[in-house]
Design a protein around this nucleic acid. Structure first.
Lengths: 216, 216
DNA sequence: CGACTGATTGACTATACTCAACTGCGGTGG
DNA sequence: CCACCGCAGTTGAGTATAGTCAATCAGTCG
């Protein structure tokens, strides 16, 4: 549950990392790199928002909580992806490392003008959130899981082997489902031969077309 | 179902409009104003995205469709609010006027640099979408309707009289519910004395605290 | 090897959906 | 001005999907 400023080498490779495209803004000497253990908090709701974060390797969940503990994960961030953009001085969300995670920090205050790149990243986040609204508002459990797997597969380079750094609980809280329903949806896809589940934390897409059809 | 470039005067006042804050970017001579009849399409999914739109008066729904016709409304836009921001050359969503609506158009191509204001608007849209994820993913039907009414009330200036320019179908497609469930939720809130429904297209908030409590 | 945690499966329940009947508001025409 | 019509909305009954609670299984780490 600690953040490091030196790199614990055993964290370097977890199978799902690939070369990232560094963010094109901000002078390099202003960028700081930090390491987070699994479960480690990156920022909390209400905290002052000062940085933008890019994942070097690892995975991050960004989420909100209701008073009674219900949780909605709004995004998983993988290598090369960016989070921490807020419309306010304070964070409205929590961010936590899922696995051992390395982050590149960009202090907002040090930016001069808003770059076209930063704007594009924000628009991409917006589109992603809006697409996810369709999933949560209008899709069944199996459709949500199918769409989730396709999304992850695409973000990991389109390989059929998909790594799942997050728990079933995380997936449920992302898809608006319980862990049992997530599990049943995985089982159904497996029973139909559409996916295989070689380990708990990976999936193999066997029938892309069928999965695509299920996600609509 | 038509768009005008002159103003049909009978559309001017529908009770929910208040003075808007004009967008602070773009020279005035580049801004164009258009009028849309109820149900009129403003843009379609796949269409080339060239403009940003600000609502002068009226109301707009922005939505996506699944192949089988299931619809998810990602946002309702009221006076002063902005939509049409896309991360791509083409629109990913549909936008339609709900009531008679006047829009101020800002051609993207005519902007020079990305202004701080435009960036802020985008971040606000992003936060709004992410907050809505929590509603769709983790709240019950009554909680969704309560949150919806509070949100509308706040955006209309915090008055207890809330105008509902959209149909129950629209509300359902925004909240991920059927019209029947929306109707039952309204009735439950009414039966508990939390709201009144003077007409089909308006609601009166009687017990703010109770409504707030129901929305969590 | 054993204990612990996370995941799966099963049985039952609750919430929201579907289908259908009915109500009432709003608009039109006599 | 009132009566009628049509459609949006409401209400009811039955169903289906996902949630809850509980038991079992599997993978991980001492």
């Amino acid at each position: 549950m600690l953040a490091y400023t030196t790199m614990p080498t055993q964290l370097r490779s977890n199978g799902i990392d690939h070369p990232i495209v560094p963010l094109p803004f901000g002078p390099a000497h202003l960028q700081q790199i930090s390491f987070f253990d699994p479960g480690c908090e990156i920022y909390a709701q209400g905290e002052k928002a000062g940085n933008i974060y890019q994942v070097e390797f690892g995975a991050v969940r960004v989420y909100r909580l209701l008073a009674d503990g219900r949780r909605q994960i709004s995004a998983f961030c993988l290598s090369g992806e960016v989070f921490g953009l807020e419309d306010d001085a304070n964070h409205h969300f929590f961010a936590e490392a899922i696995t051992g995670t390395s982050l590149r920090l960009f202090p907002r205050s040090k930016f001069g003008d808003i770059s076209q790149e930063l704007f594009s990243l924000t628009l991409r986040s917006l589109t992603r959130a809006q697409e996810h609204l369709l999933v949560l508002g209008r899709q069944t459990a199996v459709e949500r899981v199918a769409a989730f797997l396709l999304d992850l597969a695409e973000r990991q380079g389109g390989l059929e082997q998909v790594e799942l750094p997050m728990s079933r609980m995380d997936i449920g809280d992302y898809l608006g489902l319980t862990i049992e329903t997530v599990s049943r949806a995985f089982s159904k896809l497996k029973d139909n031969g559409i996916i295989a589940l070689p380990t708990l934390r990976s999936a193999e897409i066997k029938k892309w077309n069928a999965l695509q059809a299920m996600s609509e």
